[in-house]
């Protein structure tokens, strides 16, 4: 992915930071509970990607991997089949669309999740939430609207959105 290349092309300091961000976990592990900071974990083939603390990225992000953001990201995130976790140090200014979104850091922008949005106690969210389920811990900051939609409706909306593209392909 373009932003992976960007991070690899960074200077020595960034390489050092990047090494911290290669947090590939055991397949059974979940991004819902990201590893403590400064703990380097062994690389594995589990499909998730980390934007490290020193990374500042702008643009459109899409794919089929879970994502942990510990750095800064601005733009749009579209991972409808995956989990996006904004770590405690993460700062995101983006429209986020994912299967599941967990916020421990700061997000400014609307969040849409097919399954669940969780705002942990350290989380700070300003934007509208649309999901099948929402969990907000005491102490979290949230400003915005909450819309609970059934997953079926969410899929229907997603399907409707993709319809023109399918027609074009045909």
């Amino acid at each position: 992915m373009w932003w992976e290349k960007k991070s690899r092309g960074a200077g020595p300091q960034d390489e050092k930071d990047a090494s911290l961000t290669v947090v590939s976990s055991h397949p059974s592990a979940s991004l819902a509970d990201p590893a403590p900071r400064n703990v380097e974990m062994p690389t594995a083939n589990y499909n998730h990607t980390v934007i490290g603390r020193s990374m500042v990225l702008h643009g459109e992000l899409s794919g089929k991997e879970d994502l942990l953001i510990e750095g800064q990201f601005a733009g749009t995130i579209n991972l409808p089949e995956n989990c996006v976790t904004v770590g405690a140090g993460g700062e995101v200014k983006a429209e986020v669309r994912a299967r599941q979104v967990i916020v421990q850091g700061a997000v400014t922008g609307n969040i849409s999740a097919g399954e669940k949005i969780e705002i942990r106690k350290t989380g700070h969210v300003v934007g509208d939430l649309v999901a099948a389920a929402i969990a907000i811990e005491d102490g979290a900051f949230f400003k915005g609207s909450i819309d609970i939609v059934r997953e079926q409706a969410h899929h229907a909306a997603a399907a409707a959105a993709s319809q023109p593209v399918l027609r074009e392909l045909e």
Binding site: I134, D138, K143, S145, I146, D147
Partner: peptide, 16 residues
């Protein structure tokens, strides 16, 4: 969370 749950069950659209 408690308020959100109660209002969601009531069918409300919530602004916080």
């Amino acid at each position: 969370q408690a308020t959100v749950d109660v209002l969601v069950r009531r069918g409300a659209k919530i602004h916080v």
